[in-house]
Every structure is written in C-alpha cells, then in structure tokens.
Design a protein around this nucleic acid. Structure first.
Length: 535
DNA sequence: ATAGGGTTAG
C-alpha cells in the first residue's frame, strides 16, 4: 500500500500510512523495500519527511543494506545536503557499485565535482551507469569540455553507450555552441542505433538551434515521431532566439492545432518571438489569452517579456506604464528590459531611473552600471561615464570578463577579452592588423563608445582587438577553410563596435559570421545582420 | 522484479 501511494507520488500520504503501520501492533513492520520506496518518494517530491524516515529507520534498528543507503544518499542529494550524503556514505561498511555510483552522482549534483571524480577514479569497478553519472555531473555543472573528454575515455574503455550518455554529450555541445561536435554526436547516435527518445530528440533540436543551425534543428524536429510540450517549446523558442519571429508564431498556431496544450514556458518563447519582430499587438493578445484561454497565470518572466516587447518597439512610455500597473512587484528582469530599451533608444533620463530601480531590487550589480555607462557614452556624456567607472571601482564591482568560444576542425578554442595566452596569439595580432587596414580602406571609423568604458585612453587603438569575439573572428578567418562560416558563442552581449565590425568583415572577406551572444543570435552576411541592429 | 545514470524549453 505504501508503495502504491509512493508510485502515485503522494509522499505525505504514504508517510501517514507508514505511521499508521507503526502504531498498530498487529500489522507487519515495514521492510527495507518499503523504507527505500518512502525515502525515494520523499526525494522525488522534495518532501521534508525524508530525514524523519531516516530517523525511524535508525530507531527501529533495521539492518542497513547498500540499496537503502544509496536511497538515503539520493534523498539528501535532492535536498542539497552534501554533509548528510557524506555521513551516510561513510557509515557504509562495504559500499558496492550502486552505492558508489549514487555517491558520485550526489556529489556532482551538490557541486563537489572534485570529490565525485576522485571517488569515480578510485572505484574498483565501473559500469555504464557510473560513467553516465560522472559525465552528466560535468554536463550539469557546465564543465562541458570535461564531459566530452570523459565521454572519449568511456568509448576507449569499450563501455556500452546508451541514450542517457548521449543526452549529456549533446547538452555539453549545446553549451559550448560546438556545432561540429554536435553533428558528430548526432551521426554517432544514428550509426550506433541509439534509441531516439523524446528527451534525446529534444536535446538535439535544442543543440542545433543554439548552435545557429536552424535548418537542421527543424529537420530533426519534424522527423521526431513523438513530441511533447518540451519539444514544441524548444522549437518555438529556438526560432525566436534566431530571429524568426513569424515562423515562431506559425509553429505556435500549429502546435495548438495539433492539440498540444502550451504551458507557461511556451508562452515565454512566443512573447520573445513577438519581441524580435516587433509584433506588439499580437504579443499583447497572446499575453491576454494566457489566463483567459489556457488558465495560466502570467509570472514575473512573462511581465518581463512584455516590458521588453514594448521597449524594443520604442514604446518606452507604455513599457514604463506596464511596469507601474503590473500586479506583481517588478523584478530585475522588468527593470533590466526597460534599461536595455533606454539604451537602444538613447533615453538617458528614463535609463537613469531604470538603473536606479534595478540596483534597488537586485543590489549592486555590474549589469546596471555597464548599461547606464553605455547610455552615457552613446549620448556623449563622458564625465558621467567616468563617474560610473569610479563608483564601480569604489564599490568593488568588476565587469565580467568577456569570453568567446569557437570550434575549428572539431577542436574548441576559447578567447578571453584582453588575454594573450592563446597559442596562436601572434598570428591573431598580425591578422587583426591586416583586418583593420582593410576596414579603414572601406571607410570604417571605430565607434569607441562602448569600448571606451573598460579601457585606458592610451590603449584605445590596440583595444579594438581586445574584445574576445574579434580575436575569435581573426583566428577564424585564417584557420577556417574558405566558405565555412565563423561560429562564435559569447558569454556577454556583443558590443556595438564588434557588431559593426562583424557586419563589415562579412562583406569585405565574404565570410558569414554567426555569433550567439547572451541574448540571441546574430547572423552576419553581406554587410548586414539578422537582428537588423536591434538587440 | 525491485533498488545506481537523464528532465531536454525561459
């Protein structure tokens, strides 16, 4: 009965029932299986009864077995209670394969990837589940390159690879923006006849979108014979992210036509789709339909999207009005969207107000300062720019270092802004000299507005190559075969100058450049960008 | 036949 309750995901009920068993004397005591079910059910539903079950287990003096212990470790990991995981693990006299694998997974989940790896390396035996746990641990912590390296080792060891392994591999490629490796993973899946589950298919669709290959993403999407709301939302969001607002909305209609119920995440993607193409009224009507037609209460994120929708279309007053009349307390996302719109439309006064509000709700944060200083720079208020810089220095707020990642011949290269440690840095510098010459011949004048902010005056000339995406472009121009597009993944938003330069390079060098920045994609071709200079 | 690996979308 407890197991029946556990399976129907009602931990409180199964816990109550368990208490009843303990109180009545004429019923058998729960056995290890039952305890295990209880603990795992508590873990799954983030139920605080888990530790109580553990306490009862100790009190009744049940004999421990590795399965119950791994259940306990799993439960504490779900509660992010690493010290309890360690306590349980240390109490095990002879941890078996299952118990050790659980511990690897638990430590990775709670952030101690180093311990997880040491344990993994010290295991006398490992099977494919242990490998999957370790690889997924890296993928979840964003250590994508480590995940891919470990996958290589897994293959060298001749361990069986299944669809769970491939989900981690594809996810790692997604985060790196590594299209070649992603394609390789896709081919590997097909060649080895790995089962194409909904999860794996959705991960592939997401990977192709986030690597900027819309055609392949859609191809995989349409070929999937089973799709769920995650799959649809991934595709709708992927189209929006790549600037295909119209297609994104068409897909949304089609999804509803197919009888798939959209959820709150689907609507975030839909609103973003409206935003990138400036369909304010259509966005508004989708927003209104959320509650009316689908019973979905808009959350802060949806309100943030609406502010962005109005702001991006230049309707700053309406954006502000929307914030002022929203029923929830405006969060950083809402003020940030307004601030970004003020930057796009060079509205200094409203921008100052928005950045004050942003700091009010989010605390001292580099984002608010950087955007504000960019507005000042764009409107020529240099003394204010330096004021912001000084107060940042005084408050001890540093800019996040820019980082661009690019794949060449299946190898992933990282470039950090202002960092000369790349092995080919000398060639990059020479190449950049050549690029600047040709840019100047084509009439390029450095728009140093957003660059000036983070460099010293005397470095101005040199500084233009310091942004990580420029280093990546220079490297890509000489290391990638002609005709191959340069694909870059950046951790921050692309700056105005890099955007300008990329447009010109795409024309002068006849090279397509695709940049995925923090916010969206930029497809540069023939001197133009798919974002139409709005981002 | 149970009990270790994944949850992809903002």
């Amino acid at each position: 009965m407890i197991r029946a309750y556990s399976k129907s995901l009602t931990p409180h009920k199964s816990f109550q029932f368990y208490n009843k068993i303990l109180q009545s004397n004429d019923v058998m005591s729960p056995d290890n299986y039952t305890f295990n079910f209880l603990v795992r059910t508590c873990a799954q539903s983030a139920c605080e009864a888990g530790p109580a079950v553990h306490g009862a287990l100790i009190k009744h003096g049940f004999e421990y077995d590795p399965h119950v212990e791994s259940g306990l470790i799993f439960m504490y990991a779900e509660m992010s209670c690493l010290s309890s995981c360690h306590r349980v693990f240390e109490s095990v006299q002879k941890p078996d394969l299952v118990c050790q694998t659980t511990m690897v997974s638990a430590c990775a989940k709670c952030g101690d990837i180093g311990f997880a790896r040491n344990l993994f390396d010290s295991m006398p035996q490992r099977d494919f589940v242990s490998w999957n746990a370790m690889i997924a641990g890296y993928a979840q912590r964003g250590q994508s390159r480590e995940a891919l390296n470990l996958f290589k080792l897994m293959q060298m060891d001749g361990v069986k690879v299944n669809e769970v392994s491939m989900i981690s591999v594809v996810t790692a490629c997604t985060h790196l923006g590594a299209l070649d490796q992603g394609k390789w993973a896709h081919a590997y899946i097909e060649k080895n006849k790995i089962q194409m589950t909904v999860n794996l298919g959705t991960a592939l669709v997401d990977m192709y979108f986030k690597c900027g290959n819309v055609d392949r993403a859609l191809k995989v999407f349409w070929e999937m014979n089973e799709k769920n709301v995650y799959t649809w939302s991934t595709a709708i969001g992927g189209l929006a992210m790549n600037g295909y607002g119209q297609k994104c909305l068409e897909l949304f209609s089609f999804m509803k036509h197919e009888g798939i119920a959209p959820n709150e995440i689907t609507f975030i993607s839909v609103l973003k789709g409206c935003s990138v193409v400036g369909f304010v009224d259509e966005g508004r009507s989708h927003f209104d339909s959320m509650k009316r037609d689908h019973g979905i209460e808009p959350r802060l994120e949806h309100y943030g999207c609406m502010v962005d929708l109005y702001g991006r279309a230049g309707r700053l007053e309406e954006a502000l009005n929307f914030i002022n009349t929203m029923p929830l307390k405006p969060h950083a996302g809402a003020w940030g969207a307004l601030l970004n719109a003020c930057r796009m439309y060079k509205n200094m006064e409203l921008g100052e107000f928005a950045s004050r509000k942003l700091i009010e709700v989010e605390g001292k944060n580099h984002g608010a300062y950087v955007s504000l200083s960019n507005i000042y720079a764009d409107t020529g208020n240099w003394d204010r720019v330096s004021n912001v810089r000084q107060s940042m220095k005084a408050e001890g707020i540093s800019k996040l270092p820019g980082c661009s990642v690019m794949e060449v011949n299946g190898e992933v290269h990282e470039f950090f802004s202002g960092d000369k440690s790349h092995p080919s840095y000398d060639v990059i510098e020479t190449m950049w000299g050549e690029i600047s010459k040709r840019l100047k011949l084509a009439g390029y004048v450095a728009s140093t507005n957003s660059v000036l902010f983070d460099i010293e005056e005397e470095e101005k000339e040199d500084a233009l190559c310091k942004h990580s995406e420029k280093m990546a472009i220079a490297f890509g121009l000489f290391s990638l075969k002609e005709g191959l597009p340069i694909r870059i993944v950046k951790n921050l938003r692309i700056c105005w100058d890099c955007h300008d330069v990329s447009k010109m390079i795409s024309k002068i060098f006849e090279r397509e450049i695709i940049v995925r920045d923090r916010n969206r994609f930029h497809h540069f071709k023939d001197g133009e960008c798919s974002c139409k200079d709005f981002w």
